[in-house]
């Protein structure tokens, strides 16, 4: 069975059609990359899948792990195992990272009828995960993403992913604004999560992340549709030729 099946997906924002019939199937264990020029609909796709308000699905269907994705609220999608790593992780002053992560993990556990973790159990689990990612403890005590550097924010996304153990990770331009070291750390974090049961959908403008996160499939999204698919070599090709042939600038 496929993990994610997108069929002829159409979506609009403020009445403007952005996705114009996207088709994509991801099976467990696969890593897919979607590349494309600016304005192709890459971010819209990730927001439509994760359930952000303001986007209207006007046609098509998405099945996630056998369930109709659009029947689920954003938080339910997360609890079912969909994880969006944000291009620009949001700062939340006043909530410590630890509190935030605890609420997130316990929300998922509750959803699946599991007992919630108490403070001590949680901190133990969080420490072990953050250690693997080489995150300093003070990042856990600070308010969510507040004053974090670009790299720290992305590392924090990776930590959340490691804790929530999603079935499908959706990486939205995860490489934007990173230096090479941070890029490596984040890619390693994602690679550590790779398993025969999990899928990864990596949305990116540049090929560089794919050096570290070798995809099984590469797709080109242009003007709201997937216009070309191939293997990792397609990404290398795009890096050379750019997106000009797909009728868009940049």
């Amino acid at each position: 069975m496929s993990l994610l099946e997108i069929k002829d997906l159409h979506a609009t924002i403020h009445g403007k059609e952005i996705l114009k019939g996207v088709n994509l199937t991801i099976r467990p264990g696969e890593v897919h990359a979607i590349m494309g020029p600016n304005g192709a609909g890459k971010s819209t796709l990730s927001y439509v899948l994760s359930g952000r308000e303001g986007y209207e699905v006007t046609g098509g269907s998405v099945t996630f792990d056998g369930k109709d994705l659009f029947e689920l609220e954003a938080n339910e999608r997360a609890c079912e195992g969909l994880f969006l790593a944000f291009q620009y992780p949001v700062e939340i002053p006043g909530i410590t990272n630890t509190t935030f992560l605890k609420h997130a993990l316990n929300a998922k556990r509750k959803y699946h009828g599991e007992a919630e973790l108490d403070g001590l159990e949680f901190v133990k689990l969080m420490r072990s995960k953050s250690k693997e990612l080489g995150m300093p403890d003070d990042m856990l005590k600070r308010p969510v993403n507040v004053g974090f550097s670009g790299g720290e924010k992305k590392r924090n996304e990776t930590l959340q992913m490691a804790l929530l153990e999603p079935k499908l990770a959706l990486l939205d331009e995860t490489d934007s604004g990173l230096d090479i070291d941070a890029l490596r750390v984040v890619a390693e974090g994602v690679n550590r999560l790779r398993s025969p049961e999990r899928g990864v959908l990596c949305i990116t403008h540049y090929q560089r992340l794919l050096d570290y996160l070798v995809p099984d499939f590469v797709h080109v999204l242009a003007e709201g549709k997937i216009v070309k698919s191939g293997d990792k070599n397609l990404a290398l090709e795009l890096e050379k030729t750019g997106y000009a042939e797909f009728g868009s600038a940049a």
Partner: peptide, 24 residues
Amino acid sequence: FYLESRGIDEERARALLVQAFLHE
């Protein structure tokens, strides 16, 4: 949306943000 995308339901997410605002 950030909180909801991590599995936290809307009501709880709102309460958390209100608290966070004052805690700060």
